[in-house]
Design a protein around this nucleic acid. Structure first.
Lengths: 226, 226
DNA sequence: GTCTATAGATTGATAGAC
DNA sequence: GTCTATCAATCTATAGAC
């Protein structure tokens, strides 16, 4: 009968931590459970014992990392909406975008040593495995839909499909930034110096806010194509 | 003695085509040589015979797809610079961005059936394998550096590091768009309808141009954080 | 719950006949 | 150049002793 409690929980946590680290750096498929066991200093069989399969472990790792981020997104978006409704005015697009973007850069990554986690979250849309991408998307969908709805209120004159495109462009800029900010890259010399996350969020916010909050009309006619 | 010429070239091309298709859809590591041989309808050993190794094939596939895109980028950027210099004025940031972005969406993908190739090119920065990412980055670097230099001329008042960040945000928006436009996705219901590539480029251009060509200053102070 | 040992499948790559 | 056959390595997952 299990009553010690500790050793089991500890093993589970060690596996999750090691998985976060290795998945972030090497991706899901290029990380074997043998590597995981070695990194976590647990027995190879323990992983399948505690999680059932590698895919189930992947799911748990993704969930553990994304849930607090997305929860805070939803809470903050709802709060902004409520405040606006109370005041009888529209929510500010900039506030909504900030509520969506900032949690990704601050939750779980306060410590510089854990910034590699950004890579994991930033891989949502570029994962080639459909099963894994589905796990990501399912986590991502609720806060994104909420953002979309709220942005429709904030920018009622923007056509719906244009807004959706622009939100996706913003997502692309954000996830790319998360990947760049996370770990070692062979593109190091192309990259801006990784400043503090506050600066990153500020610059990203400025970029996407300008890109999104612009009345829709084709930019002035191009003079020549080439 | 080899004199027929045809069968060899044909096999090589069939392998490259099949590799493009499978790599685009399933990623590099999740595509096995056996699958490749089956898709290309060639013998399993032919792949190692013609390319030496799987990694060498990956490199050839990436090069074949990115070279014409990047070549056009470089040519167009250089032409814009030259024209501006001849007129004694600065190049237009918008023209430069267009010269960099548009080739990705038009070269090799004129036919709707080949749009899956966008996924391959869009995976440059999200690949977890360092060796593969290095291949991508090496192809990407020359036109990107040229864009950066030209943009410095176009926007001399923008601090260098701010410009670099913004260019990366634009890259993120672009690659994300390329991934979305390419293939089947479990996020289908989150995605804007895949219009024609002309509309996509237009909207993307509008977004990044606004985001980049803005004087640098923190957006107005945020009223409250939460 | 933890461990050893191993099954069972798949991988990239190669040797050698034709 | 093309093919068959196969190697050696690696992978996920499990069975069974402790």
């Amino acid at each position: 009968m299990k009553h010690s409690g500790k050793p089991g929980r500890d093993t589970r946590k060690r596996i999750l931590d090691a998985a976060e680290y290795l998945f972030s750096h090497n991706g899901f498929h290029r990380t074997s459970i043998k590597q995981l066991a070695s990194e976590a200093k647990v027995n190879l069989a323990a992983i399948n014992y505690h999680f059932g399969s590698k895919m189930a472990l992947i799911e748990k790792v993704i969930e553990r990392q994304l849930r607090p981020i997305n929860q805070q997104r939803v809470e903050r978006l709802a709060a902004i909406r409520q405040t606006a409704a109370r005041k009888g005015c529209r929510p500010l697009a900039e506030d909504l975008l900030h509520a969506f973007i900032e949690p990704a850069f601050t939750i779980n990554t306060q410590m510089q040593e854990r910034r590699y986690l950004l890579a994991l979250a930033g891989r949502a849309f570029s994962e080639t495995d459909t099963a894994i991408r589905t796990i990501f998307i399912n986590q991502f969908k609720p806060p994104f839909m909420l953002l979309f709805q709220a942005m429709r209120e904030a920018l009622p004159d923007l056509p719906e499909d244009v807004l959706l495109w622009r939100l996706h462009f913003a997502i692309g800029a954000m996830t790319h930034c998360m990947r760049l900010c996370s770990v070692d890259s062979p593109s190091a010399d192309l990259c801006p110096q990784a400043d503090d996350s506050e600066t990153q969020v500020k610059m990203l916010m400025e970029f996407v806010t300008r890109g999104i909050c612009t009345p829709y009309q084709p930019v002035e006619k191009r003079s020549k194509r080439r």
